[in-house]
């Protein structure tokens, strides 16, 4: 196998492609984690609270891994989170939608749709030849296995009775179109493929995702609101997120999460163990 290249050694076009790829990976993780934390303290039981909190921390940790890779391309946490314009975030609209109080079917189904996608994405970047993309995959994946099992187990349980299944179905009708935005190609899509940054094209990954998701959800008695043969672009919501166009929920969320930073007039962030002591 050819030795891995470092991000810093890529040429300009490849770097732009890598940036584009990394922003989407990082932003999806960052925003889904932010939403998951809304369930802390108010999950159905103490045990389910601990588990979802943990998943939130895992995803935020993964965002940090990809932010660190972007650090190799010259970005600081300040640029990436605290002073970035909300319109410059590249995450999918799936992860930015708010939860309705008590709608536990939503984070569970959303988590499932997202975790299957993340698994396939990790496969794809693991097939690249760039060290900062390949190296973190194994550790991230070890945590993702739990996420997927957690989501599947809950879905089976919730779909065990009619009332629960109806709640999951309603979440599916609402969320699946937003999940499709995970696979909308950006302007750098062909450069990402030609630079060898992912082992599998976005389109092929989307098809795998839909196969997996549809067969599992249908096995639970749910209906997936599109067929594998359908043109996915026809089912997309008005905003897809990854081009910078988001639902109105995102600027509000961004405003809330940057509030302290702005109020205190901070211009930088401290990292743990990052003080040279």
């Amino acid at each position: 196998m050819a030795p891995l290249r470092a991000l810093a050694d890529l040429d300009d076009e490849e770097r732009a492609a890598a940036e584009s790829l990394l922003f989407r990976l990082a932003d999806d993780e960052f925003v889904i984690a932010e939403r998951y934390t809304e369930w802390q303290v108010v999950a159905p039981t103490l045990e389910s609270d601990l588990a979802l909190s943990n998943i939130a921390q895992d995803e935020l940790g993964h965002a940090r891994v990809w932010f660190d890779a972007l650090g190799e391309l010259g970005y600081s946490e300040r640029d990436l989170v605290w002073e970035r314009d909300p319109g410059a975030f590249r995450h999918s609209t799936l992860v930015e939608l708010p939860f309705a109080e008590g709608d536990w079917a939503d984070p569970i189904l959303r988590g499932y749709l997202y975790d299957v996608a993340e698994d396939l994405r990790l496969d794809a970047v693991a097939g690249s030849d760039v060290r900062e993309l390949v190296d973190p995959v194994e550790k991230i994946r070890s945590e993702e296995e739990y996420h997927l099992e957690h989501a599947q187990n809950w879905l089976e349980r919730l779909c065990d009775d009619d009332a629960g299944r109806e709640r999951v179905q309603s979440a599916a009708d609402r969320l699946v179109p937003h999940a499709l935005t995970l696979w909308v190609p950006g302007p750098a899509a062909s450069a990402i493929d030609s630079s060898g940054l992912r082992g599998e094209s976005l389109d092929a990954t989307r098809r795998q995702w839909l196969d997996t998701v549809a067969s599992f959800l249908e096995s639970l008695g749910l209906t997936v609101p599109l067929d594998p043969g359908d043109d996915p672009t026809e089912s997309l919501p008005d905003s897809v997120g990854s081009d910078g166009n988001h639902t109105d929920h995102w600027p509000r969320l961004h405003d809330e999460l940057t509030e302290t930073y702005r109020e205190l007039g901070r211009s930088d962030v401290r990292r743990l163990r990052g003080e040279g002591t």
Binding site: N54, Q57, G61, R64, E138, E143, T277
Partner: peptide
């Protein structure tokens, strides 16, 4: 079967991380 406690950096959970 599983990665207890996760494998990505979780230093923030530990008292030792705070200076």
């Amino acid at each position: 079967d599983t990665a207890f406690g996760g494998r990505t950096d979780k230093a923030y959970r530990w008292a030792t991380a705070y200076n």
